[in-house]
Computed example of a mutant assay.
Amino acid sequence: MEEINRQLRQGNPSIYARTEFLNLGKIDFDPRPMVEGDKELIVKRLKEIIGG
């Protein structure tokens, strides 16, 4: 999870996840600051990173 989080942050645009659950193998995103299209951008980037 640490590597996925690192790649999310280094992408363009940078995507920041909450880090308190990384040690449990979970990536968590705060939906409050999200705007239209952010959800799809996160899914797209995660698929690129994990190869899906």
Rank of each mutant, 00 (worst) to 15 (best):
E2D: 07
E2F: 09
E2A: 12
E2V: 07
E3T: 09
E3P: 08
N5Q: 07
N5T: 07
N5G: 08
R6V: 07
R6A: 09
R6N: 09
Q7A: 03
L8W: 05
R9I: 08
R9H: 11
Q10H: 10
G11R: 04
G11V: 06
N12K: 06
N12Q: 10
N12T: 12
P13H: 01
P13S: 03
P13A: 01
I15Y: 00
I15P: 00
Y16G: 06
Y16Q: 03
Y16M: 09
Y16V: 13
A17L: 00
R18A: 14
R18D: 15
T19A: 11
T19E: 12
T19M: 03
E20W: 01
E20N: 13
E20Q: 02
L22P: 12
L22V: 14
L22K: 12
L22G: 03
N23R: 10
L24V: 09
G25P: 04
G25V: 01
G25N: 05
K26W: 14
K26G: 11
D28F: 12
D28G: 13
D28P: 06
F29T: 00
F29V: 00
D30M: 02
P31H: 04
P31Q: 09
P31C: 04
P33E: 03
P33Q: 01
P33G: 09
M34L: 10
M34C: 06
M34P: 01
M34Y: 07
V35H: 15
E36K: 15
G37D: 11
G37Q: 09
D38W: 04
K39T: 14
E40N: 14
L41C: 05
I42W: 00
I42R: 00
I42S: 00
V43D: 05
V43L: 12
V43E: 11
V43K: 07
R45I: 06
R45K: 13
L46E: 00
K47M: 12
I49G: 03
I50C: 09
I50Q: 03
I50S: 08
I50W: 07
G51S: 03
G52W: 08
G52N: 15
